[in-house]
Design a protein around this nucleic acid. Structure first.
Lengths: 264, 264
DNA sequence: CCATCTTTGTGCACGCGTTCACAAAGACAT
DNA sequence: ATGTCTTTGTGAACGCGTGCACAAAGATGG
C-alpha cells in the first residue's frame, strides 16, 4: 500500500470500516467491467476473484452497505454499481486542482482514470511564470498566485500536490486555508494539516523500498539455506553506535528530495 | 493507503511486521534530513514527530531491528541511517525496468527519488516501435521484444508496470517468466502472480475515490445536522435490486481503463 | 560514588480486520 | 406445495497492530 492516512484515529465513518472503504473502488472497477460485458448478476465468489480478495471479506464488506444480494443467485451488477458509486460519492462531480505541473503533475493531468470516475480537473497550477498559460493535456496552466481565487470560485474541495518536497507544506497550507479539505500528496514529505482535513499520500520511492526489503529477504533465504537461517544478522556493521560524525553532504536530489546517505 | 500487498498472508518476514517495514522508509527519510543538517542524535519523540507517527510506535518498530538507541540520549542518526538502509536492502544497487513509457512511465523515468535511494533505472521498455531508441529522461527506450533479454542480462528483479490496464497482465506474465520477482503496478488491474512474487499496486483513481468518500461524509454531516444523523440512508434508490438490464455501453477510457457506468 | 533525570525498550490490554463456518433465505424443479 | 440446492449474511474466534504506562538503563552533575 503506497498509502496511509494521516492523523484521525480510524474514524469508522458511518459504521463503514476504513478497510472496507478502501476496497469499494476495487469492487466498483470489477463490477464496471462486468457491466460492460452485460453480465446481469455475479456471485460473491466470482466477484471476489475478479477483485482479488477473499469472498467472505467481500460479503462482509457489502453487508456494511446493506443487504443488496439475493440468496441463491448473487448480486445484481447494475444495482451494485449504483449503490457503491453512491456510497463513494461518485454520483456527483468532484472538481480537483493539481498543483505542481512537472513531469508527474503533467502525467496526472492526462490520466484518464480521473475523468472516468467523476473527477474533473478544474485547474492546473504551477509557480513557474514560464508555465502560465501553456496548455497541458488540453488545460491551460494557471499561476499559483491565483490559487485561492481558483479554489473558492470553483468550490474545489480536493487538491493534488505534485510539487517538490520543499514547497509541499506551504502549498498544502494555502490549499487548506482556501477551503480544500482533502489532499492527495505525491511529494515525499509528511504534511501536517488541521483536524477535519484528510491527507492521503502516494510515495513511489517508499513502495520500491518495501519491495527491495522483501527482495533482499528472498535472496537471503536462498543463500542462507546452506549456512543456517540465523545468518546475515550481523554482516559487518561498520562502527559502534556512537560513531564519529562525518559531516553531512549537501547534495540535493533533482526534485528537492534528499538522497540517502550511505556511510562507508 | 494507496497500497496493499497482493496474496501472501502477512509474511512477517524475519520477525519484522509488515506494518513496521512500511514505516522504515519514512524513518529513513526523516533521518536523512537530520543527517544533512549534521544532527548527531535524536530522541524517539523528535524523530516520531518528523516522521508523522507516534513515538511509542517508533520505539517498538526499532526494537524489532535491535537495540540501537542509548537510554537517556536517543538514537545516533548516522548509525540508524545505516542500519535501516541495510535492513531495507538499500546498501546494494537495485536495477529496475519500467515497462510502458506513456505519460506516467516517462514521469517515473525522470523521478529523482529512485536514483537517490539505490534504485537504478536499467531500462525503459515500450511496445510502440515509434518509441524505440527515443531517449526519455536520458535513457533510450527499448522495444518490448527484447524484454526477456534485458531482464536476464542485467539481472533485474524489480519491474514497474505503467502500461494500459489491458496489457498489464501479459506484461506481468512476461516479466515473471523472465525472472522478475517484485512488481510495482500502476495499471488499474488486479495482477495474478505465482507464489514467491510480490506485487504492490499504486492506483491514483482509488486514492481519489477514498478521499471522495470522506469528503461526502463531511458534507453530509453538516447538512444532516438539521434533519438528524440518520438522514441520507435511502436518498432515492433508482429501482429495486432485480433491475432490468439496460445494455452495456462499450466506451473505453483513453488508457484502456473502463469508465464508471452510472445508471439513470 | 551516589543521586537524579532523561529516554529507551517492552509487557499488557484493547480494538480493528480477517477468516471460518453455518444458519437462514430464497430460487428452482417437481 | 414441498423439497432440494445454491448463495448470502453474520456470529464468533483469532491474530495483528496500536498505544499506554512503567521499569530498566545509562548519562550527567555534585
Amino acid at each position: 500500500m503506497a498509502t496511509g492516512r494521516t492523523h484521525r484515529p480510524a474514524t469508522r465513518s458511518r459504521g463503514i470500516p476504513e478497510a472496507t472503504v478502501a476496497r469499494l473502488p476495487l469492487y466498483l472497477r470489477a463490477l464496471t467491467a462486468l457491466s460492460e460485458r452485460s453480465v446481469p448478476t455475479v456471485s460473491s465468489e466470482e466477484l471476489a476473484a475478479a477483485a482479488g480478495v477473499n469472498s467472505a471479506k467481500l460479503r462482509k464488506d457489502f453487508s456494511y452497505l446493506g443487504s443488496y444480494g439475493t440468496r441463491g443467485v448473487g448480486y445484481d451488477v447494475e444495482y451494485l454499481v449504483y449503490q457503491i458509486s453512491r456510497e463513494l460519492g461518485l454520483t456527483q462531480d468532484w472538481p480537483v486542482v493539481i498543483v505542481g505541473i512537472g513531469n508527474l503533475g503533467a502525467a496526472l493531468a492526462g490520466y484518464g482514470g480521473f475523468a472516468s470516475r467523476g473527477f474533473r480537473v478544474a485547474a492546473l497550477i504551477d509557480a513557474d511564470p514560464a508555465m502560465t498559460g501553456k496548455p497541458v493535456a488540453g488545460i491551460p496552466v494557471q499561476h499559483s498566485d491565483d490559487l485561492e481565487k481558483i479554489i473558492s470560485e470553483d468550490g474545489v474541495s480536493i487538491g493534488v500536490i505534485a510539487t517538490p518536497a520543499g514547497v509541499a507544506q506551504q502549498v498544502c497550507d494555502r490549499l487548506v486555508a482556501a477551503g480544500v479539505t482533502s489532499i492527495l500528496n505525491f511529494a515525499p514529505t509528511v504534511l501536517s494539516v488541521p483536524d477535519g482535513v484528510d491527507v492521503r499520500k502516494v510515495d513511489l520511492s517508499i513502495e520500491l523500498q518495501i519491495l527491495a526489503f522483501h527482495e533482499q529477504r528472498k535472496a537471503g533465504e536462498e543463500a542462507g539455506a546452506e549456512s543456517g537461517p540465523e545468518a546475515g544478522t550481523e554482516t559487518g556493521a561498520p562502527t559502534a553506535p556512537p560513531a564519529a560524525r562525518t559531516g553531512g553532504s549537501s547534495r540535493k536530489g533533482p526534485d528537492g528530495d534528499v538522497p540517502a546517505v550511505m556511510p562507508a
